[in-house]
Write a protein that binds this DNA or RNA. Structure first.
Length: 425
RNA sequence: GCGAGCGUAGCCAAGAGGCCUAAGGCGCCUGUCUGUGGCACAGGAGAUCACGGGUUCGAAUCCCGUCGCUCGCCCCA
């Protein structure tokens, strides 16, 4: 038997209501903020990600799905959404559009990781990017998009964490300071942290080993070590967030694993989340477009994982609306009735009314049972009696009230009230 | 890449060397009710007990290996 590859999942029809719910809320929020949708390919030139995400990062080092295609080009399945959007911005000369350019996307992303709760090799992200404006009000707005989405989804007990990681001006000095601080405690560090000390001192801050975590409390803070420009950006951002009444918390340990982040970084985390708790993460990336060969263009964005959102919606028992269902099941008894039922269901559907044709193979009782199991609101019954009179029996499945009605009249009425052109729509 | 736990029908699951040609429940199908659902009752289909090897007179059950799944670490949505 074949199985879905490790770390991938089938999202069955019964699961779809969560996805529809998240997608519709996300589109609603993004549209309200003036974002336009963009779709980029599922795979890109490998160098796009190596150049943007960063050579030393886990994503590039061990998680990319990279292969040579038949023409010998190195291809990588998209491991994150920001770089492709930036590539598209450059490729299509979007700097000629009114700035900033606001875009959102839904896309599958691929990372070769060991799957566990809330983590997959293929997962799906919704994300937004704003390109071409460095003002801190844009940071505040993007954070607001994220927060607006989370709250309109009905998620409670979530934290909004922010920090500033500086820029190439001030970060080197800060990293040196951090390294110096931790070097003083070298013997106390866990083994992972000893290598972090060499390779990525920022990551020392969010170590989960308790003793190291305590050390982090006394560590120099990035936000206290910003250069003039970054500092001004940071304080303005905080002012804006206060004015917007966003319930943010400054988290001096918040650092993110992609090299391209500058200044503002932020995450949304559930209070009781496990280890894969981040449901939304993003930040500013003012150097990225230049990295990719474009002129100096600031950018900021975030992404959120649909699987993790779904997990949290279920965990916090948020009620999401059911998907749309056909209004009618067309039951039939006898060969003539089957043809009449076939014609009736076709007419309904072509008029925009949902209808399932029963094959009639299992008797009226079985067909009603079917309608019940599928939670179809009305069953239309056609048999010899109805055919003879040119009528159709309309049965309300909830009240069990049924009524025989002239076929033509019935079709005209439901088309008017439930069809494509119904005024209620 | 590292560590731990677990693999019995579509799903949940009993079983812990012979009473297993594997219990029970959900779901599915059929009938009681020959054109009327939900409830009830009766019946039915569906399992090489993950796979391979070993121990034993005898293995779903014990041992080894493989594969898979889950959870955790690293890291991330």
């Amino acid at each position: 038997m074949f199985q879905a590859p490790r770390g991938t999942a089938d999202h069955l029809p019964e699961e779809q209501k969560y996805w529809r719910y998240i997608e519709s809320k996300a589109v609603d929020v993004a549209t309200r903020f003036g974002f336009g949708r963009i779709d980029t390919p599922a795979f890109e030139d490998s160098n796009l990600f190596i150049r943007s995400v960063g050579e030393g990062t886990d994503i590039v080092e061990k998680e990319m799905y990279t292969f040579d295609d038949r023409g010998g080009d190195s291809i990588t399945l998209r491991p994150e959404g920001t770089a492709p959007v930036c590539r598209a911005y450059l490729e299509h000369g979007m700097h000629n559009l009114p700035q900033p350019v606001r875009m959102y996307y839904f896309c599958p992303v691929f990372r070769y990781e060991r799957p566990q709760a809330g983590r997959f090799r293929q997962h799906h992200q919704f994300g937004v990017e704003v390109l071409g404006d460095a003002d801190p009000s844009v940071d505040a707005e993007v954070i607001d998009v994220a927060w607006d989405l989370m709250t309109s989804l009905g998620l409670r007990d979530i934290n909004l964490l922010i920090n500033s990681v500086g820029d190439p001006q001030c970060r080197p000095a800060y990293v040196a300071k951090l390294r110096e601080y931790y070097s003083g405690y070298h013997d106390k560090l866990c083994s992972d942290c000893k290598t972090r000390l060499d390779q990525n001192p920022l990551r020392l801050l969010d170590c989960k080993v308790e003793s190291d975590h305590a050390l982090g409390n006394g560590a120099p803070k990035s936000a206290d070590n910003l250069c003039g420009d970054c500092s001004e950006h940071w304080t303005k951002l905080l002012t804006y967030l206060d004015r917007m009444e966003l319930p943010y918390q400054i988290d001096h340990r918040l650092v993110r694993g992609l090299d391209y982040y500058t200044r503002t970084v932020f995450e949304v985390q559930p209070l009781d989340g496990g280890s894969q708790s981040t449901i939304c993460g993003g930040g500013r990336y003012d150097g990225l477009i230049t990295q990719l060969g474009g002129r100096d263009t600031p950018g900021i964005g975030f992404a959120t994982g649909l699987e993790r959102l779904t997990l949290n919606l279920k965990r916090s028992e948020v009620q999401v609306p059911d998907g749309p269902k056909p209004l009618y099941l067309v039951a039939n008894v006898g060969d003539d009735a089957r043809i009449a039922a076939l014609e009736l269901s076709v007419r309904l559907r072509r008029a925009g009314v949902g209808a399932i044709l029963s094959s009639g193979a299992r008797g009226l009782r079985g067909q009603l049972r079917q309608a019940n199991a599928l939670q179809i609101p009305f069953t239309l019954i056609l048999g010899d009696d109805e055919i003879e009179k040119g009528e159709v029996m309309v049965r309300d499945m909830e009240s069990s009230v049924q009524e025989s009605r002239p076929l033509a009249e019935f079709i005209e009425e439901v088309t008017k009230t439930h069809g494509r052109d119904a005024s209620a729509e």
